[in-house]
Design a protein around this nucleic acid. Structure first.
Lengths: 201, 201, 201, 201
DNA sequence: GATGAATGAGGATTCATTCAT
DNA sequence: GATGAATGAATCCTCATTCAT
């Protein structure tokens, strides 16, 4: 049941609008009409391509800060520095996006209904990235984690510290400098967390 | 403006129904009518006790905050232990409220529109509490903070760690034991943060 | 069925609050609870003294700019000057009260439901005043109206001109100086209206 | 964005029902459901055509304003006759709409909150129309305004007289014939206002 | 007399979805 | 394929009024 070129484009437009709007406001706060209006198509058209509103979420693609992750993995230095490099990069990304957007993103993450929103995907990406950064050279020698390090827990804790900074930043309405103040303490936080499990020279 | 015994009971019933239903289905999937039906009272009665649907969450989430704060301030022990005691208590409160509820609470906190929502008030309460806990015996001798300690920053960082735990807990959909796992590391986190500014014996 | 002193006072408080609030916002925009809250009594108490919400309106007293009217009637000068004096005084009163209040007053006047609101009473007062000012020395000689003058129509037209100024003032949000600009033309308006019916010397 | 024939009919039905019901009972006593029931359409359909309940009044009240304005500008005659023609047409429009409706319209205009309601737009339309009617052939010779005429003030005063008539009509609950009595004097009013600034032959 | 808890009908508005064209 | 008119259930919230204490 291949689609016409035009049909393909309509479908893509809908998907794109849906993705952006839901990313901005959250699933519940975006109506089908919002999506069709943004796409410039009629309301009914939506139901040509998707059985129901929920359906569109399943299609939403999962890409994200892949580049940053890659760089951090291959960063030349011990595991704690790699982590620090990664978290700092995330902070900078966030600061660049602005409180408003991050706020909405967190809210979106908190929506209980959608199990597989873009926001959640990004979250798991970060988690996965930290896992990778920690394990990529695990057991390789000085400056890396020991084989018995509780990597999963460590990754979660680093995420926790990162999201703590992010959340507090949002709640304080920006009257807290994410890239300066938070980053300063993040270095110490990470060291404290990883050191006990690192292979000493 | 105290409430009648009966009124108190009605209010409690509403709160209880709300807590359970929101805990089961999430905020958006529970209507005011659901709550009143479950409580066995009329729809209008809900609005006798709460200004709007969102209001009930703020109430529920940090109901016992005040008591916890008081206890922590007067807790017999050095400043780091007091802080730890407080944060642990907050974690327990949150765990008791349930992920769904805390999620909705965070969402409300992230609403940019209202500058003075009840949700935000709770946030500032925590911040204020940490400030108090840190300064109440500041400079009093061993186990307390030095006069020159950057209390404001320390309070914000502790909040950050707490909200990090909270956020990650919500995002992980509860598949992370708040009271056990987070609390374990919070002790270390707090020590690392406060120790450099504490008066040694 | 005389009322206690205290009861009398409660009743008076309710009446006073009702009068003020309804005067400010209009009958439909004031709830019984608004009135009782403003009076500092319980909601139920309202129904001790009034059978229903509508009932309270019937009690509202009808006094108003009696003083201004009196002065205008006895103003020493021909009928057109008396009218001008009166209208100018009304403009000044309005300007003193402020756009906000007058706006609400006009809205209130436009409420179709209440036949006998305070606002409407004031309206009829103005109408009556103009009638009186025109007829008080009607037929008395030079500078007064002839017996066959269509006083009713003239009064309505002067009111019309006055309310025109008032309305436009409100609509223009105050960017139109009521006492200066309107008053300047009102003199001419009134002369044009009355002259054809005045007894010449 | 033209509407289907059928849609046009539905919209017209809604508008017609609204006009009649509001005319009979007043704005506040007519619910959206009343209107849709009377029109024989579903409740939701109302919101397909109107943003909110208030919206329908703005639509109704000065539906034909645009046409009237155009005609008046191109009316063949001196400036005072054009103005008179316009004001008379407005009076007829208002009379056709009915007191209840115009009342609600004035109330909406007086709402201070929204700076850019449809009601206010209509107001500025009238003002703009008068400005245009006065200036379109300004300085063109006999029967037109001189270049130095205070057009802005004149337009405001004519509006003032028009709204005076309208307001008094509403306040008198219709016991004042807008098209007959007001119109009779409007001619004189306009002449008095414009003559001093008109180019004589 | 006074209270304020409780009621529940009613109203405005939203929105996913259907369907005739 | 596409349109957009139409639906109506669902939701939040208001408020006049009643009544047990």
């Amino acid at each position: 049941m291949g689609l016409t070129k035009k049909a393909e484009r309509t479908r893509a437009k809908l998907l794109e609008s849906a993705k952006r709007l839901i990313g901005e406001r959250g699933f519940d706060k975006v109506s089908v009409e919002d999506i069709t209006r943004d796409s410039g198509v009629a309301k009914g058209t939506f139901y040509h391509y998707f059985k129901c509103k929920e359906d569109v979420v399943a299609e939403l693609s999962f890409q994200s800060c892949q580049a940053t992750t890659e760089k951090s993995i291959h960063y030349d230095g011990p595991v704690d520095e790699r982590c620090y490099y990664y978290m700092t990069a995330l902070c900078k990304d966030a600061a660049w996006a602005g409180v408003r957007l991050i706020r909405q993103w967190i809210r979106e993450t908190m929506e209980s209904e959608e199990e597989d929103s873009e926001a959640k995907a990004a979250l798991y990406n970060i988690y996965g990235a930290l896992m990778k950064i920690c394990t990529v050279r695990q057991g390789a020698g000085a400056g890396e984690l020991r084989e018995d390090a509780p990597v999963d827990t460590l990754a979660k804790l680093m995420m926790s510290h990162f999201f703590g900074a992010l959340t507090i930043w949002c709640m304080m309405n920006g009257s807290w400098n994410l890239t300066e103040q938070s980053v300063k303490y993040m270095e110490i936080d990470i060291k404290n967390l990883l050191e006990p499990y690192m292979i000493k020279k």
